[in-house]
């Protein structure tokens, strides 16, 4: 029990930025990103409590957490529509690090919102491959899809992102 808590503490500290970034890229806003990240870790903790020590030791933590996070987002979207992006930046409680100045933050938020407009199947693939920089095999594992499907979805997703200027904006 004590051991699980230690493992989990390290897991959170090592992966919090990564999972938060994933949440931001998938949901398109910081508020939902934090919810997603928090849910992901809470689920991970509950799961860890039921695992044997061997299973915990052999766990591929990164891929495992990504899979949980993707499922958290999928389940959320089933219930609620993604929130509209707050254009006036009214979320003062999310203190950003010193390196993340206001301008940069606004750019990132805009980018996240753009990614969040992609259809879900492209969005998941693009985010895991190019934001989180997982290998195609890892992405396929996290999404539970064949590698070929993932590759195609990444390709189509990127194409949509690039073509947005002369593509369909109201999607």
């Amino acid at each position: 029990m004590e051991g699980t808590d230690r493992v989990f503490e390290r897991l959170v500290r090592d992966n919090q930025n990564r999972i938060y970034a994933l949440g931001l890229a998938l949901t398109g806003n910081r508020h939902d990103a934090e919810d997603v990240a928090q849910d992901t870790f809470v689920r991970a903790y509950r799961a860890l409590a039921t695992y044997t020590p061997e299973r915990i030791r052999d766990l591929k933590q990164k891929a495992w957490l990504h899979r949980i996070a993707v499922n958290v987002v999928r389940n959320r979207v089933r219930g609620v529509r993604p929130r509209l992006v707050e254009l006036n930046g009214s979320e003062p409680d999310h203190a950003s690090g010193p390196e993340e100045d206001v301008l940069r933050k606004a750019e990132i938020d805009e980018l996240a919102a753009r990614v969040a407009c992609l259809p879900v199947r492209y969005r998941e693939a693009v985010v895991l491959r190019h934001v989180q920089e997982l290998s195609y095999a890892e992405v396929a594992d996290a999404l539970g899809q064949p590698v070929g499907t993932v590759k195609a979805n990444v390709h189509r997703g990127l194409k949509l992102l690039r073509g947005e200027n002369h593509g369909n904006r109201d999607d």
């Binding site: 919090q16 938060y20 934090e34 990240a37 928090q38 203190a95 990132i108």
Partner: peptide, 20 residues
């Protein structure tokens, strides 16, 4: 897209998770 992955979790996030 790669820059999107450099985002940091908000201050105190890990503490809140551990508390939860």
């Amino acid at each position: 897209l790669k820059r999107l992955g450099d985002v940091k979790a908000p201050a105190g996030f890990s503490d809140r998770v551990l508390a939860q």
